[in-house]
Design a protein around this nucleic acid. Structure first.
Lengths: 237, 237
DNA sequence: CATTTCATAGACCATGTGGTCTACATCATT
DNA sequence: AATGATGTAGACCACATGGTCTATGAAATG
């Protein structure tokens, strides 16, 4: 068994925080631990993104409460670079929406500034090792927000009465084709029925959905859970 | 300070698991602890849902790997009752997709059958106290799945080339109105321009989006990130 | 200053779309 | 046997929509 002598190279960290005091403090904390290299720092999000391009750090600690440029936007830009840079969001607030958005944009961790320095170090370690790390308290908030947003979506879809339920099977088939942007003639061809029959069905659909034209029918269908490809991707039970 | 003597009423638990051995085992575990009441059990999802209606338990432990009726579907049905019943999903697999779907449907916890009984008890305690609980390992899987699904969505939206970027601002305004199912005349009215101008814009839009009619244009817009109300709700950065 | 892009708008025409009515065959329900 | 819902289909008509061309003024770009 080979002896691996303290030689795994240190993870390279880049700090972005508009508050210089914080920046210095964090740098101090990280330096003291000695297990990471701080390759660069910036008090400006735009500059920070440039530095990321230049240095290709392993991890970026990103303050997301910055006045000028939004830290969230910076996260998005860095993710778009697709350099495999892992981002830990730093924030003063445990706002569920902020956490949700940061994670959605690809942040691999979210740490509150009020947390103990050990927690920050731990989060970085976890993220460096490829994991996603949220402190348990934030984890809870995230899940709550997650569930709430889905519940709201469902409420929107099946609220009051879904007029789609009044459609006959045949009418659903027709509507399905309409939501693919197909003409009467096209639908008639696909369903092996005459064009006038399609028109009859379509008119009945309009009646039932209380709309005046195909575009509105298609919109109603999509907004009310009529499964079309991409919604299916995200919303599949 | 009042002395609260061991008198908070026990949380009422209902078990659903098609495997009778498991069911008995879990019941045993819970009973031994003595802090929860098992009010009913069932080896069948449909019956289980009925029992939930009858007993209004505080917590339901739901096996989601059942052959006949899907446990996920049962979760959905129970959630739809809106009785405030909290569901903990039980599963043999730490499949990220399963976890994601269970949580999306409103499960407040997810526990693997292979986990120590103490973990199950702890999960129930947390859930009873109003929290959401996922074991750290599952939490990680959940987050990975979450991020991956969003990344895929983004990839779908901005893959190759988003033809929407070629639209001029005015054309975007027109398209925006089209995605609300408005006619030429209506658009003209809203934008204070003539109907023929609208037609010109619309035709240019068709050219740029490489489609033949308004329905297809609207579909393209929606499927490619053109913000319309409900997408905004879910996808807002 | 020339050129390009953009927003505006008219003319003309073919065709797609929507509204309304009537009609008939099936099938299930009463 | 009668009724109602469903799927089919034709006729007719008004108008919305889409395709193509031309044209002008403003603004930006070179």
């Amino acid at each position: 068994m080979r002896r691996v002598v303290e030689f795994k190279k240190k993870a390279r960290v880049l700090l972005i925080d508009d508050n210089y005091e914080h920046l210095a403090g964090i740098r101090e904390i990280i330096s003291l631990e000695g297990q990471f290299d701080v390759v660069a720092t910036s008090t400006n999000a735009n500059v920070g993104v440039s530095l990321v391009k230049k240095h290709h750090p392993d991890v970026v600690l990103m303050d997301i409460n910055m006045p000028e440029k939004d830290g969230l936007q910076a996260i998005q830009e860095i993710e778009k670079l697709d350099l495999g840079v892992r981002i830990v969001a730093l924030s003063g607030y445990d706002d569920a929406d902020l956490i949700f958005r940061a994670m959605k944009l690809g942040a691999k961790g979210y740490v509150l500034k009020t947390m103990a320095s050990a927690q920050l170090i731990y989060a970085i370690e976890e993220v460096v090792s490829g994991k996603i790390y949220l402190p348990p308290a934030l984890s809870s908030r995230f899940f709550e927000y997650f569930q709430r947003s889905f519940k709201e979506e469902e409420a929107n879809i099946s609220n009051e009465e879904n007029l789609l339920t009044y459609l006959t099977q045949r009418e659903e088939e027709v509507l399905d084709l309409l939501t693919q942007g197909i003409t009467y003639k096209g639908v008639a061809g696909k369903l092996f029925i005459s064009e006038t029959t399609v028109k009859t069905h379509v008119n009945n659909i309009f009646q039932k959905l209380q709309v005046n034209d195909r575009t509105q029918a298609v919109l109603y269908a999509i907004n009310n859970g009529f499964t079309n490809k991409r919604r299916a991707l995200m919303t599949t039970v």
